[in-house]
Amino acid sequence: FSSAVDVKQRIEQMVKSKDIVVFMKGNAQQPMCGFSKAVVDILNMHGAKFESYNVLADEDLRSGIKEYSNWPTIPQVFFKGEFIGGCDILLEMHRSGELVDELKKIGIKS
């Protein structure tokens, strides 16, 4: 049993648990969806360490994270507790070079 408030608190702790947090389908070693895999690949390419949470293993988390960030799809990427976006946004940031700057801001040299 868990109420919406509990889920929200749990997610708040999760997004702040590491500098980079990813909510995805599957885990970093074994992504279960191409979009989630793309996010993992991009972050790995930049040598950025991250924490990942598998929404497929937790239905409360799967629906809760969408509400928390007001974002309808998975994966979701957070830097320093702040929602950055999904796969398209991370990919675009990677292409434009913006990602390097954003990572630098949170102290990660890629």
Partner: peptide, 14 residues
């Protein structure tokens, strides 16, 4: 920002 743009599209296709 990219995020704002996509939020707009998501909202339209809610």
């Amino acid at each position: 920002s990219l995020l704002q743009r996509q939020r707009l599209v998501n909202e339209i296709l809610k």
